[in-house]
């Protein structure tokens, strides 16, 4: 089973993300901020990271920069999930090494679509009308 680390300071959003990701077949690990998340990654690198931008202590962008310099830190697929929906933030995230970007609000379909995009989950068969 693939592991997805959810880095998010809101416990409500973490809960929502956990439900969606578990439905997609991931084992979910949570972190409340970037520093917390780095500790998790040092212990065991996850396959996927769903990453908020604005968080106390260390924000998502700085976490990403640290992660990509860690040994094995280029492995996880990182998907931002943030209310920062300006094109400047998106461009910065991609340049910083993010694989995909979700603009909040999000739902199961968007997470599934983005995780498909980066190859974390298989394409699902389209439903017949």
């Amino acid at each position: 089973m693939k592991t997805c680390l959810v880095v998010e300071d809101s416990s409500i959003v973490r809960k929502m993300a956990r439900r969606i990701l578990e439905n997609l077949g991931f084992e979910v690990v949570e972190a409340e901020d970037g520093v917390d998340a780095l500790v998790v990654c040092k212990r065991a690198m996850p396959e996927a990271i769903l990453l908020d931008w604005n968080m106390p202590v260390m924000d998502g962008y700085h976490f990403l920069c640290h992660l990509r310099r860690m040994p094995g830190g280029d492995e996880p697929k990182v998907v931002f999930c943030t209310t920062e929906n300006g094109i400047d933030h998106i461009t910065r995230a991609i340049d910083g090494g993010a694989n995909e970007y979700i603009m909040k609000p999000f739902d199961k379909e968007i997470v599934a679509a983005k995780f498909q995009e980066v190859g974390l989950i298989e394409l699902t068969e389209p439903n017949l009308v």
Partner: peptide, 23 residues
Amino acid sequence: SQFEVQRGLPIQLLVKYFKQNGE
């Protein structure tokens, strides 16, 4: 809408070919 561009469109193509106007 923001919702529509997040389904199926890779973020790189969104940045490359679309112009943002609010949401």
